[in-house]
Amino acid sequence: MMAREAFPDPGGREIPGGEAVHYPIEVDRVTKQYKNGAFTAVDNVSVRMAENEITAIIGPSGCGKTTLLRQIAGLEYPSYGRILMDGTVITGPARQRGMVFQSYTAFPWLTALQNAEYPMRIAGVPPAERREKAIEHLKLVHLESFQDYYPNNLSGGMRQRVAIARALGQDPRVLLMDEPFGSLDAQVRWEMEELTVEVEERTRKTIILVTHDIQEAIYVADRIIFMTRNPGKVKEDMVLEFKDGRRFTKKEDLIKHPGYADTEAKLYGMMREEIDKIRSGE
């Protein structure tokens, strides 16, 4: 209980059943420094992410949002502090935490289906079973008719969908997404945002999404963590109350929703402050 003090985020929320919210990921006073301490990418950050929630981490370039996500994945280690998953300190990557990268990481030598099967293959799942599950995941990302295509013959959006299907194949509790749609066209990006909401509704994962896109964060996430740069700190941690716990399968429905414009304006204002800070050479 004492450790809870370290978390200034809107924790301790109660869900209607009266049960306390569970937090699979707890970032506990994490500092990440590079160049022997000369550069601080993440500065004493404590947050926790709630089960079945989509948390977006947003902020200007260089605010340490990707560094934080990579540490949650176990691909990098904190300089100070620790990150826990279900109470256990994270010491490396593990299959409970799947990750989707900004660059296309669908394995080019495997077909879409073989990619979707891959994490189950290396975990020793029998062929028939993993095939069935992989097809199910490809259906979830609307790629079932492309299962025999190699990634090089798929569009960027489709390759990211393969990457999502593959990440689902490892049956992770937490899905980490590092600017997954950053290099996609606006319209494809929009499709992928809606797909992310759909995947969350169907699979009930805990998703942490790093993005620099304000609209994407508001649309996809239930809660937004805004990080500021140099050093990387949490500037604001806001639960998107105006959504009333709802998720919208169509982006335009959300944009019409009362409260959307205010949230957007607020985040743009915060981003503006950051830009001004960078311009003034701070």
Binding site: A73, R95, R97
Partner: peptide, 18 residues
Amino acid sequence: VSGELIEAALTMGASRKT
């Protein structure tokens, strides 16, 4: 070989040999 392909495999729980 792209470092991210390797990292992707690691986050899937791949062993060093894999």
